[in-house]
Simulated scan of single mutants.
Amino acid sequence: MAVAIVALLGGCVTTQEQRIGAADPADQCRPFVVALDSSGNFFAEDIIKGAVIGASGGAILGGILGGNVRGAAIGAATGAIAGAAAG
C-alpha cells in the first residue's frame, strides 16, 4: 500500500518544461522564472520524503498496535497523509 501511495505522489511531480513552457530567447525574465520554479522541486521532494517516512512508521505502528495487516494498512495510509502534510 505504501508503495502505491509513493507512486501516486511521484506522479504529481512534473518537470520544469511542463510547468513553465518552452524557452523563449527573447524573454529576459526566463532565468528568474526558472529559479522560482526550482523552489517547487525542493518542496516536492520534502513532501514525498515525508510521505514515505510517515507511511513506513504508520505501517509499523499500525501493525504492532492493530496486530494484523488491516491495522498496518490503515497506519500506512494515515502516516503517509500526516508525513506529506508535515513535509
Rank of each mutant, 00 (worst) to 15 (best):
V34S: 11
A35M: 14
L36F: 12
I53C: 03
D24F: 05
N68C: 06
M1K: 04
I20A: 09
V69S: 15
L8S: 08
V6G: 05
G57M: 06
Q28R: 11
E17D: 08
G40M: 13
A59R: 00
A86V: 09
Q16R: 04
I48S: 02
G21N: 08
G67R: 05
C29D: 09
N68V: 01
G10A: 13
C12D: 06
I48A: 04
T15N: 07
T15I: 05
T14V: 14
G75P: 05
A4N: 12
T14H: 15
G50C: 02
M1L: 10
V33M: 03
G11S: 12
S38G: 10
N41W: 06
G21Y: 07
G75K: 00
V33K: 14
F32W: 15
V3E: 13
I81K: 08
A85W: 10
L9N: 08
E17N: 08
G75I: 00
I47F: 08
A86D: 03
F43K: 06
I20K: 03
Q28P: 07
I47C: 09
A85T: 14
A85N: 03
A26N: 13
I60V: 15
A84R: 03
I47A: 11
V34K: 14
G71T: 06
G21P: 03
R70M: 10
G71Y: 05
L61Y: 02
N41G: 07
V3M: 11
V13F: 14
I64Y: 12
G58A: 01
V33F: 05
N41A: 10
A82V: 13
P31D: 01
V69Q: 14
L65P: 04
A22Q: 10
G21Q: 09
